[in-house]
Design a protein around this nucleic acid. Structure first.
Length: 651
RNA sequence: GCCAGCGUAGCUCAGUUGGUAGAGCAGCUGAUUCGUAAUCAGCAGGUCGCGGGUUCAAGUCCCAUCGCUGGCUCCA
């Protein structure tokens, strides 16, 4: 048969081995770097036969994403071999490749220690040195089950049973055998650049009710250089960790004596929040939102009626006032619905867009708290849009547009997901289908790529989740758009239609930044603490050279403050270099040096955080420079403010 | 909540096999008046997260608890 092998037409015999086929066209060096092969969308072991329907056969090196993935997965096998050798009682489960590396879960009588990891790593290196071949063997499911049962590998037996396939593959290298679909590198000698990183508990099949396994995480790369680079990046990421920067920049703190997951905002952090909040208020007004505000606690009866008590109770705080039970709000929707219901609404009044920077409290499990990114008390930039069913699509598009504009202003990339009905939920299948479809169509119309997250919706409706990444590449949900046909029903929301009859509106829950706390956290890491001028709590610091310039420096400060610039003056009796250093460490965008020359010229000497040095500038010009810079993201943003007004259908 | 690791001065960290706590920075006082990332000197600062226990003796060992970190599960 004719096959195009690595770009060359080759005549192969039926059943020819891939490695041989590749060897015939590749140089020795190229072949040595080949870890597997691809035929169409199939990834294959080098030891496999060329499939009879294969037209194009490509070698995969460690440099390709697929090749790297195979290296990582193979390294997981290598680790499992080492673990079984050192701890024969450990049972193997699964070991996939993940971003930057791999993990493998073991059932073992005790947790692995850091010393164990060292021993395991040493054992892995031995196996690499021995350069053992990975060999694949096909077995019937029955044979494989018997084979693994004989070794006491009960998890593998369970996997074989659940796979339900008649035929399975078993890979062996050295004395170690593992059930796996493959493919793998041909020899352990190809796995050189890896490091075991940590141990963690993980539930079998990700279910809390299952036994907890011992998971070992590792990272693996094509070569030592890439590995070193990655480890270096991990170090770099630590430097931009918002928890560290939060202390360094004096933005916020946490206090054991006050309670876990509660943020204390220091002056600069509180100012940063306020800047974000002002920005949001303005942008919401431009888009036809109205401000509302409800109380922090509401009677428990209301939470029972809304379904929160049944579905969200374990995340709520409760209290009692005058022998009456109350719940602290974990969400803002109830107050907004109550406000909606204070009068009869006409179809002409819709959509109503109620916005609130609402403080919510959620009892998150202790183990999930994480700096600002996961707290127990936070402020949502929350809105509820109550509209007619025929307006739903446009409203969702409006919100997604809003999200896109905002993310552009902050210079964030984001990914979108649609989450569908979870097991624990309320409402009819029909409503869920309609709402899910509305969300899907909105993203389709806007041409945004998205993934489907089955069963991950809120209990009252499906949602679009927008995620952005932190310094370590972990994704955090910020914006979310949730359709809700259920709460309007439960709270009997209505509007009077053109026909004079009562109709049921639809409600959209949505947040843009998600929580101010989380957003500040991600923002801090995104900019490594060097906030753009429009967000920087301190935009300019005046630094004097000696005490002699104090009066002029104070004059400059008043001038800048009057212009609306967030400025402060460092008048301390310290050397200029020292004051510059401090301002630099505080990541203040503008340093305005004032010495005798500047007093003489009635000007300031501008130094930039980024390093440039615009030099001597008259006060007016310096102020304009700073104000211009703080407008920069809005100029490039291209915000869209179109929205439907609440006047109903054409008159 | 679960698994593991960690909690020493405001911050960053030392502290030997158990022998009774130390540095740098920050702070305070004084000197210095200086041109773009650290001026010098002195002083002060700790119930070693909190509570039990073992021991002649605990920052060090054990138990419990609170908190933090990395995961798991869950979520904005």
């Amino acid at each position: 048969m004719q096959v195009e092998v690595a770009g060359q037409k080759v005549e192969l015999e039926q059943g020819a081995v891939i490695a041989d086929a590749l060897k015939s066209v590749l140089s020795n060096k190229q072949f040595k770097n080949t870890v597997a092969a691809r035929c169409g969308d199939k990834l294959l072991d080098l030891t496999a036969a060329v499939p009879s329907d294969c037209a194009v056969l490509e070698p995969l090196t460690a440099e390709t994403p697929e090749g790297l993935d195979i290296i990582r997965h193979s390294t997981a096998h290598l680790m499992a071999e080492a673990v079984k050798k050192l701890f024969p009682q450990a049972k193997v489960t699964i070991g996939p490749s993940i971003e930057n590396g791999f993990y493998y879960d073991f059932d073992f009588e005790r947790p692995f220690t850091p010393e164990d990891l060292e021993a395991i790593e040493a054992e892995m290196l031995k196996s690499v040195g021995a350069d053992k071949p990975f060999s694949r063997k096909e077995m019937t499911a029955g044979e494989a089950a018997t084979f693994f049962a004989a070794q006491g590998e009960s998890y593998k037996v369970e996997l074989i049973r659940d796979l339900g396939a008649p035929q399975v593959s078993v890979y062996t290298h050295g004395g170690f055998a593992d059930l796996c679909r493959g493919p793998h590198v041909p020899r352990t000698g190809l796995l050189k650049a890896f490091k075991l990183l940590s141990v963690a508990g993980a539930y079998w099949r990700g279910d809390e009710k299952n036994p907890q396994l011992q998971r070992i995480y590792g990272t693996a790369w094509a070569n030592a250089k890439d590995l070193a680079k990655h480890l270096q990046q991990l170090e770099e990421a630590k430097k931009r960790d918002h928890r560290k920067l939060g202390t360094q920049l004096d933005l916020f703190s946490f206090h054991e004596e006050a309670g876990a997951g509660f943020v204390f905002w220091h002056p600069k952090g509180a100012l940063l929040r306020a800047i974000l909040e002002d920005f949001e208020r303005k942008e919401h007004l431009k888009r036809g939102y109205e401000f509302v505000q409800g109380p922090l606690i509401l009677k428990r009866d209301l939470w029972e009626r809304s379904g929160h008590y049944d579905n969200y109770r374990e995340n709520m705080y409760f209290t009692e006032i005058d022998e009456q039970a109350y719940g602290v709000k974990p969400m803002n929707c109830l107050a907004h619905m109550i406000i909606y219901k204070t009068r009869i609404r006409s179809y002409r009044d819709l959509p109503k867009r109620f916005f609130e920077l609402g403080v919510v409290h959620r009892h998150e499990k202790s183990g999930v708290l994480h700096g600002l990114l996961r707290v127990r008390s936070f402020t949502q930039d929350d809105a509820h849009i109550i509209c007619r069913p025929d307006q739903l699509q446009d409203e969702i598009i409006g919100v997604v547009n809003f999200v896109r504009d905002i993310m552009k202003i902050f210079d964030f990339d984001f990914t979108a997901e649609i989450s569908t009905r979870p097991e624990k939920s309320i409402g009819s299948d029909q409503d869920w289908d309609r709402a899910t479809e509305a969300l899907r169509q909105a993203l389709e119309k806007m041409g945004l790529p998205y993934e489907i997250n089955e069963g991950d919706g809120a209990f009252y409706g499906p949602k679009i989740d927008i995620k952005i990444k932190d310094a370590l590449g972990r994704s955090w949900q910020c914006a979310t758009v949730q359709c809700d046909f259920t709460l309007p029903e439960r709270f009997d929301l209505s509007y009077v239609g053109e026909d004079g009859g009562r109709h049921r509106p639809v409600m959209v829950h949505r947040v843009l930044l998600g929580s101010i706390e989380r957003f500040v956290g991600v923002l801090t890491e995104h900019f490594a603490g060097a906030f753009p001028v429009w967000l920087a709590p301190v935009q300019a610091r005046i630094v004097t050279v000696t005490d002699a310039q104090k009066p002029f420096a104070e004059k400059v400060l008043r001038f800048l403050l009057e212009k609306g610039i967030r400025a402060e003056a460092d008048l301390r009796n310290e050397k200029l270099g020292f004051k510059i250093r401090e301002a630099q460490l505080e990541k203040i965008p503008y340093m305005l040096v004032v010495g005798d020359k500047e007093v003489e010229a009635q000007a300031v000497n501008v130094r930039l955080r980024e390093g440039g040095d615009p030099g001597l500038k008259p006060l007016e010009e310096a102020a304009r420079m700073i104000l211009d810079a703080s407008q920069e993201p809005f100029k490039r943003g291209g915000m869209r403010y179109s929205f439907s007004t609440a006047t109903g259908p054409a008159d």
